[in-house]
């Protein structure tokens, strides 16, 4: 257990170190890349809760990433225009404060996850994979045809939302926000998985019948984990919207769902720091391979194949001390 904790801390520290060194070396672009990695890792930590610990292979988590992003984009653009988001049944004003936007994004994501999860969890196995994918596509097509918020072209907002006491436009300060939330989410995830709830959830993944026989309803456990997982992904979506000051249906696309899944699996499923390592390596590959060939995704595909076929434990599974602990 200690070795795993050290490994988790090391992976997180490496990400922070990259951002700090890049900042000192005067390379703000690299700081922004580290921020992107932290945000993707946050999404991965969220998905890991459902996928790694809960055994729910959701292929539609982009929907929560996108909803988090759209809530942020919509409130920010209304705040910039000085118009209310809603006038009926009650008036809701726009906002450009991260501390107001995050809870909003998380609540809306939670509601969406409650509906999607309750329906999808009626199925299992392959059905679950396809159904979560289909629900994400449904929202994707809705976003494309919703012209009030940019439709296919997406929605830009020009000012990054603010955080008290920080200048969110300074790359390192924005990184600090993303990394801070990532650390919180990792801590939360560690607490959840060690709680009675988390243990029952993992037991339900391992042996559904026995959990039912001991008087626990797996459905309630899984739905709760699904919603928690979605909320973290929604928060990541909100940060990602702020990173780009732009949201578009691409955030909801099934490629995004696949990528979030890749962060988790590249790093190692069901490991706390797996998504952090996975997202970091993904961004690194994008930069390195992207410089080699514009068809870098083909190389990424081959690498992924190799990992799935020959190293099912992901990157962390290859490291000493990286033995799977769930």
């Amino acid at each position: 257990m200690r070795r795993v904790a050290i490994l988790n801390a090391t992976v997180f520290a490496a990400l922070v170190a990259v951002a700090l060194v890049a900042h000192l070396a005067g390379a703000p672009y690299v700081v922004t890349l580290a921020t992107k990695a932290a945000i993707f890792a946050l999404a991965g930590v969220g998905l890991n809760l459902a996928l790694g610990y809960g055994g729910m292979v959701s292929f539609g988590h982009a929907v929560f990433f996108g909803i988090g992003g759209y809530v942020t984009g919509i409130f920010a653009s209304h705040a910039a225009a000085g118009t209310p988001v809603l006038t009926f049944p009650f008036t809701v004003a726009g906002s450009a404060e991260m501390l107001g936007l995050w809870p909003m994004a998380m609540v809306v994501t939670a509601l969406a996850a409650l509906v999607i999860g309750a329906l999808s969890l009626r199925t299992s196995g392959v059905y679950f994979i396809m159904v979560t994918l289909a629900f994400a596509q449904m929202v994707y097509y809705f976003a494309i045809s919703w012209r009030a918020y940019g439709g296919e072209d997406g929605l830009s907002f020009y000012v990054r939302n603010s955080f008290p006491g920080l200048n969110t436009f300074a790359p390192l300060q924005f990184f600090a926000i993303a990394a801070g939330l990532l650390a919180l989410a990792m801590g939360f995830s560690a607490l959840v998985t060690r709680s009675r709830f988390g243990l029952a959830l993992q037991a339900a993944r391992a042996n559904r019948q026995r959990v039912m026989a001991s008087g626990i309803r797996p459905f309630a456990l899984q739905l709760t984990a699904f919603v928690l997982s979605a909320v973290i992904v929604g928060l990541a979506g909100s940060l990602y919207a702020d990173l780009n000051r732009f949201v578009s249906p691409a955030m909801l696309s099934w490629h995004m769902s696949g990528e979030i899944m890749v962060f988790v699996i590249l790093g190692g499923v069901g490991r706390l720091a797996g998504p952090v390592a996975g997202a970091g390596v993904f961004i690194l590959l994008e930069q390195v391979l992207g410089g080699v060939s514009e068809y870098w995704q083909a190389l990424l595909g081959l690498l992924l194949l190799a990992i799935v076929l020959y190293a099912p434990g992901g990157i962390l599974g290859l490291l000493p001390g990286g033995r799977r602990h769930v």
């Binding site: 292979v57 292929f59 196995g125 696949g258 699996i265 083909a298 990424l300 595909g301 194949l305 799935v308």
Partner: peptide
């Protein structure tokens, strides 16, 4: 199924590119 999804997702990347 998770590994199948991932490996065939990787195949899509290879085929498309």
């Amino acid at each position: 199924h998770l590994e199948q999804v991932l490996a065939t997702f990787a195949l899509i990347l290879v085929f498309s590119e």
